[in-house]
Amino acid sequence: MVDKRNGNSPLSEQPLLEVRDLRTYFFTRRGTVKAIDGVSFRVNCGEIRGVVGESGCGKSMTAMSILQLVDKPGKIVSGEILFKGEDLVKKSRREMSRLRGKQISVIFQEPRSSLNPVFKVGNQLREVLHIHEELKREQEQKKAVSQLREVGIPDPERRMDNYPHEMSGGMAQRVMIAMGMACAPDLLIADEPTTALDVTIQAQVLDLIRSLRDDHNMTVLLITHDMGVVAEMTDNVTVMYAGTTVEEASTEVLFAEPLHPYTQGLIASIPVMGEVKERLDVIPGTVPNLIDMPPGCRFAPRCRARIEFGLEKCMVEEPPMFEVKPNHFARCWLYEGGGDEA
């Protein structure tokens, strides 16, 4: 049996989602904020694809761009988002609202504030079914209850009548997942699904997402800043920095052999159990201001490798993605000769 999840699918197979050179800018009075400036990645059917990076690097905005839910004054200025081969950027508002919740659904970081406080969770769950599926009332109710049961909510019939404030964060996130799964979507975007939850609940929610993926052969785009979650959950990873993708590889390869100096810094910053350190490793400096980016590589001002190897090009010209090894890409001048330009 072919394992679809390892990401090394043959090139002929169409990816479920392909983002090509996406740029989402915010036009503010203080200038143009380039929240996403050249993001490309593919998500294959059945895989869990991680998108990782610091806060403010554009991870969540990538998710909102895919859903076409970028709020004003933000706008997708260029790029393509191909979902099953169709460009979502070109879809009308009505076409998108038919797609959202049905084929692509999303769960957010703050589960309790993501549920409407004035409606019962049961009604909020049924609303998804109501919009996308033509069911009779009783069927709708039945299906909603079974969804709640599937995400591990005890006593689901009674929980249907709860309001969000009567639930814990973990429960609320399960409701969000049930809502996301209600119409059996092809793609589930999980935007920091466990960040607001405490550690034991985190593990439960992650397990739930993984088992749902296994049971329904769903594809998951998991957005997180937590390298631990990435290591545990994902098949392939895209690393983002300051609005661009900087590295892309399968999870194992990425952790074993990170290529981009930023990824190397990220991995080095994970504390290792049992190892005593004076200080945790950190990446010096901060993410550049998204309004005026440095002209060359965005990571150059913080990059140790640049100084070690005496590269001068970094401050002047932005590197492209190099395919350093098969299916392992990095946006760094260090690999200029070592691979083909992607």
Partner: peptide, 23 residues
């Protein structure tokens, strides 16, 4: 309209007029 649950409603596929009038 800037709150999280409104974003959720949009993400569920609720039409914009209904997002405003209901949620």
């Amino acid at each position: 309209l800037g709150l999280n649950y409104v974003r959720t409603a949009r993400a569920k596929g609720v039409r914009e007029t209904k997002v405003v009038l209901k949620h």
